[in-house]
Write a protein that binds this DNA or RNA. Structure first.
Lengths: 108, 108
DNA sequence: AATTAATACTTCTTTACAGGAATATTCCTC
DNA sequence: GAGGAATATTCCTGTAAAGAAGTATTAATT
């Protein structure tokens, strides 16, 4: 999960991912679309690939990159695990305050 | 969104967030729990705060930090926007291949 | 087989940022 | 208001990683 987040955090890689959201593209197309140099794109794609975010499909002498669905599903589930914050927010703070109070009494 | 991802990507900050998931905590408690020095914790909390991920509640001379729900909701929705990848995956690759074919013919 | 296009792999430089240590600030308590 | 916690800020150093430019590799076409 940390690797996943780290890979997506870099702005250029994020742009690549957002671009691939519309559909698979070859390296050169990505470079042109985003105004980047080809080597940088390849490097970023390597990172994304190692994080399992993209998959490669060699077609002739091109390499077509495509998004994998799994990481995004994983990310969604992780964010979803914070759903309880919606409701319990204030209760939690109150709980904490009461704990602090009690601890203060003990220490006296 | 980029700022949000970037803030969560850093391992220590991710640990802090995972810790705060269980409930609000003061700076010193976070430091102790994670075996970190107080200044680093404050620094990371500042980043998290500027990203809107945490909120502060000053209590006496302590500062209690708590997770904000919104960023996680936002993150979940963003990941959800990639849901179409689940189904359309192979269709998209086929589409791309057909586009490439057609383009090849044109250029001749 | 030679040439060319597309992509990956170096090497180098530079920048961003995390950690460490010391210091400053804030806010209680006496 | 002085002393002491708890927390924030500052300055420094080291390091990881992104960008640039050149080079190597792979594959297709003739």
């Amino acid at each position: 999960m940390k690797i996943l987040l780290n890979s997506l955090a870099e702005p250029t890689r994020w742009n690549i991912v957002e671009l691939l959201k519309k559909g698979p593209l070859a390296v050169g197309e990505i470079a042109e679309e985003l105004g980047l140099r080809q080597p940088q794109v390849s490097k970023h794609l390597k990172v994304l690939s190692e994080a399992g975010i993209v998959a490669v499909h060699p077609i002739a002498n091109r390499r077509v990159y495509q998004l994998n669905p799994e990481p995004f599903q994983e990310l969604q589930e992780w964010a979803e695990s914070y759903r309880h914050l919606w409701e319990e927010r204030f209760d939690r703070l109150d709980d904490y305050l009461m704990k602090v109070e009690k601890r203060g009494e003990k220490e006296k």
